[in-house]
Design a protein around this nucleic acid. Structure first.
Lengths: 146, 146
DNA sequence: GTTTATGCAAATTCTTTGCAATACT
DNA sequence: AGTATTGCAAAGAATTTGCATAAAC
């Protein structure tokens, strides 16, 4: 058990991915870690007192390139982001999980325990990435309806 | 074997879905039927001599509500549309097929023969729609690389 | 004559880039 | 100093709406 502070852990995390741990990036990372749902740039922008959409945009771009976050298109028309799991390489067949968008509460979550089943493709097709979004009503919202 | 013209068939098709077969709608439908790939509004707009993006937008909205087309978000950031299959009810478990986006040629196709495998969801989650997009290189493009 | 669809213009929304200023090593 | 990051402003691209005209029933 280490005595590293949370902040120190985040710094290490970013550095291990080859990303310089600037103030904005630390803040953004911590916010993403805190959230249990996938988030859009617009939502992140509102979460911070002072923030620039362009900075956030570039932060997420950097994070994505370095394998810290992944994009999700959940059908709402805006891009959402969520942290990758530790040690995730975003590889077809091992890492790719499914996403669930709730039409009731509007939230999109990563169901990281639910990997994408193997998929048949026609002869000659090569899969490099898979995006699976299920829409419906989430557990929280079906509870509310009881 | 009927002697109905193609145009008459399209008229019947739209009427059977409760959509009035106006000139623009017939044109749009025929174009979609002709295309083997999913298409964006922008592409459709260019396909016609005279066309309005707003008219096309509303046409697709109507078509979608009536179950004539389905939307696809293929990761390119623009919404694509493709005709539903005959008798498709877009039902989870029977109708939903997967989509393939080729990073090489940029085309997105419906692999209507490839249904989405059954998916496990956590307790309490209800699926109403599933969107599965596989990205990679399509058969045509892997051929070209030979 | 009433409802429905279309064309045009413009508002919205979100993503993305240019460039100067700032911070970091 | 020299590179990387940020803030601001604004460009781009796509979706969506308001309203007046035109078409269909």
């Amino acid at each position: 058990m280490t005595s590293m502070s949370h902040m120190e852990q985040v710094v290490k995390k970013l550095e291990s991915k080859g990303v310089r741990p600037t103030a904005m990036r630390l803040l953004t990372y911590k916010r993403l870690a805190q959230l249990e749902v996938a988030t859009s740039l617009g939502e992140l922008e509102k979460d911070f007192e002072r923030s620039e959409r362009s900075t956030l945009f570039r932060t997420m771009k950097t994070f994505e390139e370095k394998g810290i976050v992944h994009q999700i298109e959940d059908g709402t028309g805006v891009i959402k982001y969520a942290l990758c799991e530790d040690n995730c390489e975003c590889e077809v067949g091992s890492d790719l999980h499914l996403h669930f968008h709730c039409d009731s509460c509007g939230e999109t979550v990563c169901l990281t325990e639910h990997k994408i089943p193997s998929i048949n493709l026609p002869e000659g097709y090569v899969a490099e990435d898979i995006n699976l979004v299920v829409k419906g009503v989430c557990g929280k919202c079906t509870d509310d309806l009881d």
